[in-house]
Design a protein around this nucleic acid. Structure first.
Lengths: 246, 246
DNA sequence: CGTAATATTGATCATGTTCAACGTCGGTGG
DNA sequence: CCACCGACGTTGAACATGATCAATATTACG
């Protein structure tokens, strides 16, 4: 659904990119211009793109949550990452012929769709923009490595704690954490599919985290009571998010 | 250790990049020139880069095997991917301030080290080269997603079978498979750390694969007797490798 | 108010871990 | 030459984490 321009919806994109790599003034304006061009909306629980599609454009999420996933032939689903406001979906992906994943929304979303020409014009207009998008791709890569570690070598409690720490940090950089509380629209089934657990065990793991007073999760609102402790149980080290910009 | 130029060692790089994105004549020459510039060697079981290092250059593996890994504070190790001849290690990685992973060799390796200036000169010299390197980054991302799925939603047998299928396909594109047999320098401990299993269970899983006649693994040589069957047990779909270049 | 999606609980089961021992192979030094 | 050593691989047994199955709350919402 086409929407036209939308108030300050570019903000998370600027915050996200700027956290990864300092944007120039010119870069900021270029992004604002480009993003205004084609803004779309989608409802909750809707596929934005599907495995096998020909990738034609780069999508940038302005508001709402989405996730990348794949379903195996026998129905098992794995959520491979969450896409948060400000995140883009594979800059330059049109270089490939087919998508190997699907993206679905978790909430209603507003996003920007840049066709190949617009995107290339954008990144060639300013060096800091090109670098920031490259950083985004590298950061996505890094996050994906961390998920590999999470699923390969952490147990259920550590995994869930780690996911929560990651979401907290990522949401914080785009201003979506309010006093250690953030909106977590994923159901327990979603969280189970993201952490490689069964829903039953995910439920029990959440209860364990609640029981030890580390978090509260109620009505889709997650509060972290002791980030340091949560971080320790998860062995969370935020370096892989590359949000420092030294 | 500095080595100077080395015969046809660029070949795997050209094959790898060309499989992802057709290189122009000019691009091929540019790569040959750039790679000849600074060729290094390292012994087996040696760290090439370490977590926390400041990334200064882009590395391209010319021969031998390496792997990216991380070790958790309590000693658990996860191998997050294997780096095969022709693969590069994070084009543009110098945009970040710190590495969040280590890379170690599995065999003696020959690799090329391009500092930021050389690399940027290379990719700006030819559009197809820039696109090919971008594809490499996107493909790395895609492989990492597949590993996430592997660890999250496949059981031990499927996981190991899947890893073998992936290595087979990747090695084939750089000409390192001879009649369904390839050199697999990883120990069972390495394979366990790559698949998120214990060495004991990895050993038993390999025996199961051998027992059902799917593979032979002896003296570091792996033979696939029935790729179709192996592929089926792994639910392997090579699309995520993006080696088709449609 | 009724219904479907989501969350929770208990009980049983299975996959994979851990621990400990032993086997095998290829050096290496006496 | 051979005894020793270390790395790697293999085996058995006990154990544990997490899966599965099935039933029952709870909630959201038309």
């Amino acid at each position: 659904m086409f929407v036209g321009t939308e108030g300050d919806s570019v903000q998370p994109v600027l915050r996200r990119l700027n956290a990864l790599r300092r944007l120039s003034e010119a870069g900021v304006s270029a992004i604002k211009m480009a993003v205004r061009h084609r803004i779309l909306k989608a409802a909750a629980r809707e596929d934005l793109v599907r495995e096998g599609d020909r990738p034609d454009s780069v999508r940038v999420l302005l508001s709402g949550w989405a996730f990348r996933y794949r379903i195996l032939v026998d129905g098992r689903r794995q959520i491979v990452n969450f896409i948060l406001p400000g995140d883009s979906c594979d800059a330059h992906i049109y270089l490939f012929s087919r998508l190997d994943y699907s993206i679905a929304t978790l909430t209603p979303v507003v996003y920007c769709e840049l066709d190949r020409e617009s995107f290339e014009q954008l990144v060639s207009s300013d060096r800091s923009v090109a670098e920031a998008f490259y950083c985004e791709t590298l950061a996505a890569n890094s996050i994906q490595r961390e998920w590999t570690i999470n699923l390969g070598r952490r147990d259920a409690l550590e995994r869930v704690a780690h996911l929560i720490c990651e979401l907290y940090e990522r949401l914080r950089t785009v201003g979506l954490v309010d006093k250690d509380t953030f909106f977590l629209p994923a159901t327990q089934t979603d969280l189970a599919d993201a952490t490689g657990l069964s829903t039953v065990h995910l439920n029990r793991t959440l209860q364990e985290l609640r029981g030890s007073g580390l978090i509260t999760l109620k009505d889709r609102n997650l509060t972290i009571h002791d980030f340091q402790a949560l971080s320790n149980t998860a062995m969370f080290n935020p370096n892989y998010l590359h949000l420092d910009r030294k």
